[in-house]
Amino acid sequence: MGGMRDIGALLERFGEGKTAAAARLITILEEGGDGAERVMDTIFARTSGAYRIGFTGPPGAGKSTLVYRLAKLFRQKEHEIGIIAVDPTSPFSGGALLGDRIRMQKLSEDPKIFVRSLASRGSLGGISNCTDEVADLLDAFGKDLIIIETVGVGQSELEIAEKSHTVVVILVPESGDGIQAMKAGLMEIGDIFVMNKADHPDAVLAAREIENSLRLKDIPEGNWQPPVLLTSALEETGMEDVIREIENHRRWLEERDLFEEKRRLILRSRVRDAFMDKLERKLWHDSSITRILESRIGEVYDGRLSPYRMVEELERLVTVE
C-alpha cells in the first residue's frame, strides 16, 4: 500500500468524491514522507479556505459531546463538516485507543460529515503532526467547516491556536479556581470560553471566575473580547449561543482583514515547520556530521570538550550564505 501509482489512482477517485479514497489519502498523510508530499502537492491547490475551529480543554470536559451537538446544528445551516478528533498515543506501546466517535455515533449517518480520529503519535502539542495536512485534505474534499478537537491533556496544548481561526476553550466547574484560570496557557488562546456542565451547581460561579480573570487581562478596546458561555452538552442547552459567538468571531476577523492575516501566519509557520523537519533529518543523515559526533563524543563524556565547543565544530560544517 502507499505506492506512487496507487496515489495517482486514489487522487482521481478523491476528485470523484469517494470517501474511501479520501480516507486512504489521510493515512498516507499520517505516514509522512514522499507519499504525503505528493498528495499535498495535488491537494493544496484544491483547498478553498475552509473555516477552522479548534476545540480544546481538559479531559472529560465534554469536548466530543459538544462537537457532536454543534456539528448537527451547523449541518442545519448547510455547512459540510470535517471533524478531526485527536487522542493520545501511548509512549510505551505506540498504540492508541481512539474513543471520540463514541460521543458522535449519530454523525456516521450523515454523508456530509467526515469524522477522522487521529492518534497524536508522539506530538506533544495536543494535536497530531499532520493535523494541518488532514484539514487541507478535508477542505479539498468539499468541507467548508473543519472542526479540530485536541487530545485534552492540559495547559500546554497550545498548538491548536496556530491551526484554527477560532479557538473554543471548554472548561467545567471542576477545572479549578480563579488562580488556575490566571495561569499562562490555555486561558490565553481562547476566543470563546465555554463553561460546560451548566447543570452542575457550581457552574455559574465558575463561569464568573473565568470572566473575572479575563477582565484582569485588560484586553485593549477594539480587540476581540472573549465571551464566557454556559452550556450543557448533555441537556443540549446553550448550543445556539456557541454557534452565534463562533459566527460573531468569524465576522469580526473578516471585517478587519484579520482572516487573511491569520491565514498568512498559519502558512508561514507551516513552511517553517516543514523546512526545519526536513533540514533536521538531512543533517542527522549527513556522514561528515555523524562521523565527528561519533569520534569526539568521548571527549565530551570525559569532560575535555564542552558540548558547546562541539556544537561550534559541527556548525562549521553547515554553511548558509
Binding site: G95, A96, L98, I102, E109
Partner: peptide, 25 residues
C-alpha cells in the same frame, strides 16, 4: 500491542459501522 484502535460504542447499525470503518481507513 501498539495498534490504533477505534471504539465506537454500543448499539451500532451496520451502516454506522461501515461508514466509520471507511472514514477511519
Amino acid at each position: 500491542a501498539g495498534m490504533e484502535v477505534i471504539y465506537t460504542g454500543l448499539h451500532q447499525t451496520p451502516e454506522m459501522i461501515a461508514e466509520a470503518a471507511v472514514q477511519e481507513d
